[in-house]
Structure formats: structure tokens, C-alpha cells
């Protein structure tokens, strides 16, 4: 035991752990708890039945009352353990409740009806995942529609953004033309115009173009980003011009140089930008909220928000939907964490 402890607390520098190390690890583990517990709690709760969600204090794991099918009754009956009185220790199925009394039967001997005070029994519960929360989403709620809307917006906006931004970055990094500095300043200028401060005129332009209540109204205005142009230009500047000259010798057209040489060579930067763009679009909220007002056009984020706003919040479906919305991003995070961190930190945007 002592050895294990020594091993666990050993540091690279031979000395024992200082109190600051203890403080550091305490802080970090508290951080892990604070950052992960809410998400874990959300996922666990999403597997609880509506009845289980109402329970206070809540249980950590999802439980459901056990039921049993008794001969002569169509519906499965809930099981209770009798804690006091005449039938103490037996496990009985409840037929119905009348006031403070319950009519019960012994599943082994279903003919005889027994009367038990409800203060004398406790429900028999077992760990069980309420997967119907999830299957309901596909049936009763148009989850797939929202999912499709979100995916369509994310994919199309990302593709358009990558194309236009990489073309602009190519022009700004590989050509010497009059007005290049002006264009660069223009791009910097757009940094100062976040969407949040031009909502009203943007709304006019989008409705004038007939894109109000259309997914394209979300896709197109977000397609050109100054961050994207900068990120790609910065990378393309590092591609040596000699490659381009060699290609020109071989009579490659400029467009061919762009898509056969520049694009493949800046793939790492494009990958970073693609991940960022996917994240931006998937999580986008304010602009879709303005443009998409009909529920058949809702993205997942809008659908989540409108469900929770309803008077009777149906938490069981809402939680399941939240988990499914969170899932794609969590997957991306697990596999591409490093690129995301690098990309976000280098562009200063998210």
C-alpha cells in the first residue's frame, strides 16, 4: 500500500509533493467535477422517465418501477414491497389505489385481492434506461427535420465559406496587384462589424433577396468571414512562389494552380478553418432566430430553445434532444481536440 502511494505521489524531481502541488491537484479535480458533472448529469437524466425526473431528491442513476404481468390483467402492474402490516416482506402488484388504501394482488396467487395502506409499501425499482425518450424524438417530434436543417446549414455554409475564403486568400497572398493593401484593410474593417450590430439592415437585405424563412438566409450572410481569409492567407504566404512559377512554365492555368497546388498544400489550414466553421454554424443562434420563424425551418438550437420556452416543459424529451445536439460536437472534440485548440487560439475567435 505504501509503495503504491509512493508511486502515485512521486514527481519527476525526486522530492515529495509540496503543498502547492496538493492545492493544484485539488483545484484541477474540482475543475474536472465542475466542467463534467453537469454534462454527465444531463446525460444520466436524459435516460430517466418523466416520473423519475419529478422525483425529489433525485437519484443519481435512472430507475424505473418494476412491473409484472399478472394473469387476468391486460396491463402490466407496478410492483411494491410491503414494509409494514399484515403482509410485511411480500412483494405485491398494485391493481388500483383508492384514497389511502391500495388494492393489491400477489403475482403468485392472482385470485385473491389484498388491501394495503399506502403508507406501508414502497415501490420496487430497478436500474433501467428510458430509451423511449430518444425514440420519441424520432416519432412524435420532428427531430430528424431539425437535425437535417442544422446539418444542411452547417455543411453548405462551411463549403461556401471555404471556397470563397480560400479564393480570396489566394489572391491576397500570391498576386501583386494595385489595391491589395486596400482590400486587406477592407477585410480588417469587417472584423469591426459583427453580425450583432447590423441585425436590422441584414434582415432587410435577406428578406429583399427572398431568403427570409429559408435556410439560405442563414447560410449566405455568414459565408464570408475575415478570420477565415486571414487564417488561410497567413498559411498560403508560406507556400513558396517557385512552385507557382514552375506550374506556370508548364502552362497550368491560374485556376488550376489554385485548386491543384494551393488548395492541397494549404490543407492543414483549411482543416482548421473547416472545424471552426462547423462549430460556428452548428452552434449559431441569434441570426437563425431572426431569419427562421417557421418551425419547419428550425435548426436544432432553435428547436431546443422553443421547446424549453413552452409552459409545460417536457424535460424528458428536452433532455434527450439536448444530448443529441451536444453529441456531434462532443465527437468532434474527442477526435480533433488539438486542432480545435490550435485553430481557436490562433484566430482569436470562436
Amino acid at each position: 500500500m505504501g509503495r503504491t502511494w509512493d508511486f502515485l505521489t512521486a514527481t519527476r524531481g525526486a522530492t515529495r509533493l509540496h503543498w502547492t502541488d496538493w492545492a493544484s491537484y485539488t483545484y484541477l479535480f474540482f475543475g474536472v467535477f465542475l466542467m463534467f458533472f453537469p454534462v454527465v448529469w444531463l446525460v444520466l437524466s436524459s435516460f430517466k422517465t418523466e416520473a423519475d425526473l419529478q422525483r425529489y431528491p433525485p437519484t443519481f442513476l435512472p430507475y424505473q418501477q418494476q412491473t409484472v404481468t399478472v394473469e387476468g390483467y391486460d396491463e402490466p402492474l407496478p410492483l411494491f414491497e410491503i414494509t409494514a402490516g399484515e403482509y410485511e416482506g411480500m412483494i405485491l402488484a398494485q391493481l388500483r389505489r383508492v384514497g389511502l388504501q391500495a388494492q393489491m394482488v400477489d403475482p403468485a396467487a392472482p385470485e385473491e385481492r389484498l388491501r394495503v395502506a399506502i403508507s406501508d409499501y414502497e415501490p420496487v425499482e430497478q436500474f433501467s434506461l428510458a430509451t423511449e425518450n430518444y425514440s420519441d424524438l424520432f416519432g412524435r417530434f420532428s427531430f430528424l427535420l431539425y437535425f437535417w436543417n442544422s446539418t444542411f446549414i452547417t455543411v453548405m455554409a462551411t463549403l461556401i465559406m471555404l471556397l470563397t475564403n480560400s479564393m480570396a486568400a489566394f489572391a491576397l497572398s500570391k498576386y501583386q496587384f494595385r489595391g491589395r493593401t486596400a482590400v486587406l484593410l477592407l477585410v480588417i474593417g469587417t472584423l469591426m462589424i459583427p453580425q450583432t450590430v447590423v441585425l436590422v439592415p441584414l434582415f432587410l437585405i435577406v428578406s429583399e433577396m427572398g431568403m427570409f424563412n429559408s435556410l439560405w438566409g442563414v447560410i449566405i450572410p455568414g459565408a464570408a468571414t475575415p478570420t477565415g481569409v486571414f487564417l488561410l492567407r497567413q498559411y498560403m504566404l508560406t507556400i513558396p512562389d517557385e512552385i507557382l512559377d514552375a506550374a506556370r512554365m508548364d502552362k497550368a492555368s491560374e485556376w488550376k494552380i489554385y485548386w491543384r497546388i494551393i488548395l492541397p498544400l494549404s490543407a492543414p489550414a483549411i482543416a482548421v478553418l473547416a472545424i471552426l466553421a462547423i462549430m460556428w454554424r452548428w452552434n449559431d443562434f441569434l441570426w437563425p432566430l431572426i431569419v427562421l420563424t417557421r418551425s419547419e425551418n428550425f435548426t436544432l438550437q432553435l428547436a431546443l430553445n422553443s421547446f424549453q420556452g413552452e409552459l409545460q416543459t417536457q424535460w424528458s424529451s428536452l433532455l434527450a434532444m439536448t444530448v443529441l445536439t451536444l453529441l456531434p460536437i462532443a465527437m468532434v472534440f474527442m477526435f480533433l481536440q488539438q486542432y480545435i485548440a490550435t485553430g481557436i487560439a490562433s484566430t482569436g475567435g470562436k
Binding site: L163, T164, N165, M167, A168, F170, A171, L172, Y175, V183, L186, V187, G189, T190, I193, V197, V198, V200, P201, L202, L204, I205, I220, P221, A223, A224, P226, V229, Y258
Partner: peptide
């Protein structure tokens, strides 16, 4: 090469500022 991007910038960033 710049055109599509500048078009988007103009239409959805600079024009809105003036209209604002």
C-alpha cells in the same frame, strides 16, 4: 478570385452598416 468574397463582404457587412 476576390470577387465572391468581396461581394459577400459588401452585401452583408458594408452595405448593412450604411443602411443601419
Amino acid at each position: 478570385f476576390l470577387l465572391p468574397n468581396l461581394l459577400l463582404f459588401g452585401l452583408f457587412a458594408f452595405l448593412p452598416v450604411i443602411l443601419n
